[in-house]
């Protein structure tokens, strides 16, 4: 869509009214904060950050963590799509390889051997959550990440899973297995 630009009239071209309006707005806020003591943080949260934690809204994009399913099993199957899509290359997955541990739930075939997110690199864009075909990674509400070394800010699989908690939702591998069990034996007995 192309927005037509209106030609400016003389007052607008002179820029003076804009300056005056700018001053009006800034003065209003200045006065309100300085003399009435009202601030955005005070109005919305009732205080300032470290003492009064900031309440984040629904859908806030905080730190990405891995989640477990209803049975406490790792949902991630190491498909590495998040690693691929991650713009700052913050995610690094070590696939299980042929002799790695199988998935800790039945029927899912694999899970990552190691899953690392470098929180110093992460830009909280949410692409990993969006691309995940397993609903295994979610941007959660943590916004205050801190550590005393760079190594500490690289979260490994255990830490991500511990922080992520459990998540309800689809259980397609279980459903597949149930379906397979319900069907007659394979190959079907000759009749």
């Amino acid at each position: 869509m192309i927005v037509e630009r209106k030609p400016l009239n003389l007052a607008e071209r002179l820029y003076i009214p804009a300056v005056a309006n700018g001053f009006k707005v800034t003065w209003r806020h200045f006065k309100r904060t300085l003399f009435e003591g009202r601030t955005a943080a005070g109005d919305t949260a009732g205080g300032f950050h470290p003492e009064v934690p900031w309440r984040v809204g629904e859908g806030y994009r905080g730190a990405p963590y891995l989640v477990r399913d209803q049975d406490g099993a790792t949902k991630c199957v190491s498909c590495q799509l998040c690693e691929f899509v991650c713009p700052p290359k913050a995610i690094r997955i070590t696939p299980p390889g042929p002799d790695g541990a199988p998935a800790d739930r039945r029927n899912a075939e694999k899970m990552p051997r190691e899953f690392e997110i470098n929180m110093l690199r992460c830009i909280f864009c949410g692409y990993c959550q969006e691309v995940c075909p397993e609903e295994a990674i979610f941007l959660q509400r943590d916004y205050s990440l801190s550590g005393t070394s760079r190594a500490e800010m690289i979260y490994d699989k255990e830490k991500l899973l511990a922080l992520g908690g459990a998540h309800a939702g689809l259980r397609k591998w279980k459903q597949k297995e149930d379906e397979a069990r319900a069907q007659e034996a394979f190959p079907p007995a000759a009749s």
């Binding site: 190491s78 498909c79 590495q80 690693e83 691929f84 696939p95 299980p96 390889g97 042929p98 790695g100 694999k110």
Partner: peptide, 12 residues
């Protein structure tokens, strides 16, 4: 391939 199985996604 058992050798390449679950080693690395091909797009990398």
């Amino acid at each position: 391939s058992k050798d390449f199985r679950f080693q690395m996604r091909v797009w990398f």
